[in-house]
Design a protein around this nucleic acid. Sequence first.
DNA 1: GGCGTAGTTGTTCAAGCGTATAATAACATC
DNA 2: GATGTTATTATACGCTTGAACAACTACGCC
Lengths: 209, 209
Amino acid sequence: MSRRTFHRAPEGERRHDLIEATLDCIAESGLQGATVRQIAIKAGVTAGLIRHYFASKEHILQEAYRVVIGRLTEKAERVTGDPEERLRSFIVINLTEPVANSRSLSLWASFISRVSVDPQLAAIHREGYLGFRNALESLLADFLESKGQEADPARCRALAIAINGLLDGLWLEGCLAGELFEERELVSIALTSIEALIGLPIGAPATTQ
Amino acid sequence: MSRRTFHRAPEGERRHDLIEATLDCIAESGLQGATVRQIAIKAGVTAGLIRHYFASKEHILQEAYRVVIGRLTEKAERVTGDPEERLRSFIVINLTEPVANSRSLSLWASFISRVSVDPQLAAIHREGYLGFRNALESLLADFLESKGQEADPARCRALAIAINGLLDGLWLEGCLAGELFEERELVSIALTSIEALIGLPIGAPATTQ
DNA sequence: GGCGTAGTTGTTCAAGCGTATAATAACATC
DNA sequence: GATGTTATTATACGCTTGAACAACTACGCC
């Protein structure tokens, strides 16, 4: 009986592949589907190798969650342009591919369901959430200031919480049942709604569109 | 070795107990924690009994999901009073106990993570979501009409989607990290925001409060 | 008051789980 | 090209899982 030949990959690449395989497993069949054997099969290696890179199954799941959160927030946190443009981009990015799709939601929900149980995951979540909301709050402050309004901290906080909630909710619904909405309907609703919340135009398309 | 004596419960009661035990298991340790043995222990019976009431583990999970969705929506769908009062109650109910708490979120997220995988769960979800949004849309139409505004269907739809999103998002954040917010801060933000979206007062407390 | 039905228990089974470890193959260095 | 290191495989172990089933017991019915 002969051993199979194998490829000896650079450490970073192999870790990345294993995490990617983990996410595939979770997206396809939930956290329960992410067994070390399934992950190994998906990554094209044997199960034992996973323990060579990750101290335990918990560890690979935690790293995988970091990757998920990173992908949900990195694009939005790197918007460019003038304040109005940045705010608008932030909104659009969060409600369109690749941030908004059903795979992202499945992954996100899988981990969220364990946040209240696993303190490690809770810490990772908290970090990601506050980073996201602070980015939004600072975008808002810049935008209000650019429009000549004083950026009252209390109002910025309330606005950031409300807009963050609105974006989260619309993202959720779009991912869960995108076919219930017209093309770009959610983006359009988000822009119009946020204009109403702030009381200033941010370049939303006309409502007739 | 003697058998333990056992209580012969009415069918409805026992099914209810088993589902409740299932929800406890899921809330405490996720879907993976809801094994037939754990459920049985939690319900104070033996594992085999579960198969007497439910054809398979999948079946008890589906029924449990129906219960979760029911609890998240039943209270809000039964508000009473004049249109403004009903709308305000709808908002408050969805952002306060017992609808908004971390256990509800854990349960909800656990199931949501499987919606895209399991068609049965997807159907149950769709039903619950549309029922909820339609209830909101009809509340809005009544409210607008009571204020002498024509209830334009397109606007009602867009408003319902936006408000539903806002409520979902705020509910989510409150459940996930309630300690990041002041007492009733989320309710207050929701009411103020929705007033801005609709363009009419609905009895939100003054912003200074 | 005995009997039949069905709710409930205890036990078993094969499959799959996470983890541990020895053997092996690929690569770096000299 | 021999050698040492380590990434990778293969296999094993102890445990839990969902499911199945036979034995047992509470209760309704006649």
